[in-house]
Design a protein around this nucleic acid. Sequence first.
RNA 1: GCGCUCGUAGCUCAGCGGAUAGAGCAGCUGCCUUCUAAGCAGUUGGUCGCAGGUUCGAAUCCUGCCGAGCGCGCCA
Length: 547
Amino acid sequence: MTPAKLAEAVLAAARALFSERGLDPAALPASTTVERPRNPEHGDYASTIALQLAKKVRAQPRDLAAGIADHLGRTPGVKSVEIAGPGFLNIRLDTASAGQLARVVVQTGREYGHSDRLAGQRINLEFVSANPTGPVHIGGARWAALGDALARLLRASGADVGTEYYVNDAGAQIDRFARSLEAAAGGRPVPEDGYAGEYIKQIADAIKKDHPDAGEATFRDEGVARMLREIRTSLADFGVPFDLFFRESDLHSRGELETALARLREQGHVYDAAGAIWLRTTDFGDDKDRVLRKSDGEWTYFAADCAYYLDKRERGFERLMMLLGADHHGYIGRMRAMAACFGDQPERTLEILIGQLVNLVKDGEPLRMSKRAGTVVTIEDLVESIGVDAARYALARFSSDSPIDIDVDLWTRSTRDNPVYYVQYVAARTASVSRNAAEVGLTRGEADDFRPELLGHEKEQDLLKALGDYPAIVAAAAELREPHRVARYLEELAGSYHRFYDNCRILPVGDEPIGDLHRARLWLNDATRTVIANGLDLLGVSAPERM
RNA sequence: GCGCUCGUAGCUCAGCGGAUAGAGCAGCUGCCUUCUAAGCAGUUGGUCGCAGGUUCGAAUCCUGCCGAGCGCGCCA
């Protein structure tokens, strides 16, 4: 029995009690969950449903609990139900019922952990969006790892997700980039407000080689094109493909800023003052109004943001998510107000996720190692230092609210304190067990011959429970937009497997004949392999067959 | 000044209102003639920043204070 099925049984028991006692069924929740008590004396699973219902129907929680326990105790697969404390239900499952989970997991395979709770939702997820004036730095790498994991999580929950990278290829910073390239190509020092770094020289030389009489316009177009190609490649090498690289210049060339302005004007939130055109974002809680078109006739960056917002919405996305660094949190107010100015409800259509910054550290000192950019650490530097798997895992394992230092030595170590290896080692071990089993002629056999009641060892039961937790973890991680929950879970699951492996011999020893217990444990081994692989996949980390 | 985030073991961090707050590291001690020791077992370590409030129940929610980081342009 899975925890989800057990939770349904708990609810069914409550429903039965309500009907028996003539209580109002409207007080019952649409769904409920069971939790895993930390203390094993409190059973395999616990429900707090009696505590929650008691105040709604003005009953004694322990009395309600007793009634629910009565019905629940008759559910097949449930071994016992006890009432504890103020009204907890402490539930134990039959060994066989718990063991069946291994079969469910193996048979569900790659789909295990997926759900349809976000089915039908069209979500646009924008992240990284670093300017195409230089390589993606380590901060961008964090959003790449997090955003990609989030996209996978949302898709695993059934959502229709489009990932997007906004390319700021218009405006003053691109002019500076173009002038820097032109200067570098001519052997002159880059302008005061320009871009430095060896990569500028390299790109400039390459452009000059292909276009000997290149002017600023060519340096601009070619420079952006080449830089963007590099960015796309770095991200692809990092395992982060975007569905769309959206260019700001397209908004301009298609007249979408004018369209957006007209739309905002229709909604009555635009006014002219001091020669500029303003959006009255203070109508919706922003701390000041924002300029759309400057008095010199130029559009502001914010005007392009408005057009981009409208473009996404008109492409059919009902929810726009954006990952931004903490240094951009000041955007939230104006973005939400802007959405409201379009007539949307920002709390429904816009979701801005803010993440803290990240450093690469060696020997306790922040690293500045880029040969190319001079001062910043690029995504390539990160991959070169610790590899893609360690990098993706390191960036995804912490809450995005927490600033992180990635210690090069830790993340390249092959020991217990390097979490990525600890987890990947389970993938390798389970795969190794599978190979060795095949060699001695041990297979899982037919599903009907699986004997789940043999998995009664404490470590087997612990592992089964950990495997059962996975779908709820994925659902919570998706709902809370917190991929790190998956990583933390995998570390716990890895611990459960290692302890199982250490205590429960899977393969026959010597010339011992193959028996049902060997086969049952192989089911458990393979179920673990499935969940580890599924979980690592959500994080974009490989599940190696050998290490 | 205003806003956002954070404050949990010596260190790095988990903990979407539930029972005795967890993990790894660091420290100390054990386990490889059997499936990968990149592993396992044991042991030490806490006023959950402070003070109130809500609740049957608060590390978790609310308010205030203290401390740290970041942000508050007709910049991009």
